[in-house]
């Protein structure tokens, strides 16, 4: 589940084929795009939470990290800075989604893997 696909993505997030298949299935089921919010802290802290598009109300302190197949990926800007402006690879793994996140299919959840920075300017 970890072949990397950069096609169809923008910004600092890419997605594996498995993640893109899960996103396509969710979008079809929801009748529109989903959104991702990278969480922090406690039990499911490092999970990317997946919600129906627009479910999570974004504020001025949130940033758009990237777009995957028309689905936006956000995180708190201070968290983004504290974590050294990471690049994320969205993937799918077995397991229960954290919090109120949508599953990435039966028995699956989304995960983010961190890619090393592409340059040293950050």
């Amino acid at each position: 589940m970890s072949e990397k696909v950069e096609y169809g993505t923008a910004g600092r997030v890419t997605a594996t084929r498995a993640a893109r298949r899960a996103i396509a299935a969710l979008c079809a089921a929801q009748g529109g795009p989903v959104m991702f919010v990278q969480s922090g802290g406690c039990c499911d802290g490092s999970d990317p939470m997946c919600f129906p598009g627009g479910e999570f109300v974004l504020g001025d302190g949130d940033m758009l990290v990237g777009v995957v197949d028309g689905c936006t990926f956000h995180m708190d800007a201070e968290q983004y800075e504290a974590l050294g402006r990471p690049f994320y690879l969205l993937d799918v793994e077995e397991g229960t989604p954290g919090g109120f996140s949508l599953a990435a299919g039966d028995g699956l959840h989304f995960v983010t893997r961190v890619e090393p920075p592409r340059n040293k300017t950050s």
Partner: peptide
């Protein structure tokens, strides 16, 4: 958490769900 029949919600967990619960 969205239910109109609760008078308060208490949560322990991560920040995104915490924010969603406040929302």
């Amino acid at each position: 958490a969205t239910n109109k029949r609760i008078a308060k919600v208490a949560f322990t967990g991560e920040t995104t769900t915490g924010r969603l619960i406040m929302q």
